[in-house]
Simulated scan of single mutants.
Amino acid sequence: MKPAEFTYHRPDSVGEALRLLADNPDAKLLAGGQSLLTLMNLRLARPTAVIDIGRLTELGRIFDDTEDLVLGAMVTHRTVEVDPLIAARAPLLADAARYIGHIGIRNRGTIGGSVAHADPAAEMPLATLVLDATFHVESATRGKRQVAAEEMFVSFYTSALEPDEMITWISVPAIRPDQGWGFVEYAHQHGDYGLAGAGCLLTVGPDGTVAEVRAAVLSVADRPLLFVGAEAVGREPSDQLWENLAADWAARTEPAADDADYARRLCAAALTEALTDATRRVAARRGEAEVVR
Rank of each mutant, 00 (worst) to 15 (best):
R43Y: 09
G180E: 03
T209D: 05
L42D: 07
R142K: 15
A88C: 09
P120L: 08
G180H: 07
Q240H: 11
A283E: 03
V184W: 10
D52T: 06
I51N: 06
V210M: 09
P224Q: 03
A274Y: 05
V80L: 15
R78M: 12
V220L: 06
F227G: 01
V80D: 00
A116Y: 05
W169G: 03
S219F: 04
S238A: 14
K144E: 14
Y99G: 02
M1N: 09
D259H: 13
V217F: 02
H9L: 13
M166Q: 03
D119W: 09
I111Y: 05
E5D: 15
T66W: 15
T7M: 07
L71G: 02
V137M: 08
Y8A: 13
A268L: 02
R61D: 13
L271T: 07
E162Q: 15
A97I: 05
E243M: 15
I86K: 03
R252H: 11
N244W: 07
N107C: 13
G112S: 05
P177A: 09
P163T: 13
A270M: 06
R78S: 11
R108W: 03
D277Q: 15
L226H: 02
L129M: 12
H136K: 04
P84S: 09
E150R: 15
L29W: 01
G72K: 01
A174C: 15
R61V: 05
Y262S: 11
A73C: 06
P177G: 08
Q34F: 02
E212M: 10
G33T: 10
Y193H: 08
V204K: 04
G180Y: 00
P177Q: 10
G229E: 00
M40Y: 02
P47N: 04
I105P: 03
A118T: 06
V75R: 01
T7W: 08
F183I: 04
A116T: 06
P206M: 10
G197T: 12
Q146D: 14
A283Y: 06
I100T: 02
D65M: 09
V220I: 06
E273N: 14
L225W: 05
T110H: 01
G109V: 00
A256R: 13
R55Y: 11
D248C: 03
V147R: 02
A263E: 05
Y157L: 11
L30W: 04
E236M: 14
D258T: 13
T158G: 01
E236A: 15
A116K: 10
V115Q: 04
G208T: 11
L225T: 05
A215R: 01
A246T: 07
Y157T: 04
W242G: 05
A149C: 12
E212L: 12
R280D: 01
R235F: 08
P11W: 04
L201Q: 03
H77P: 03
D277V: 03
A27G: 05
L56E: 00
L71H: 05
A149M: 10
A247Y: 09
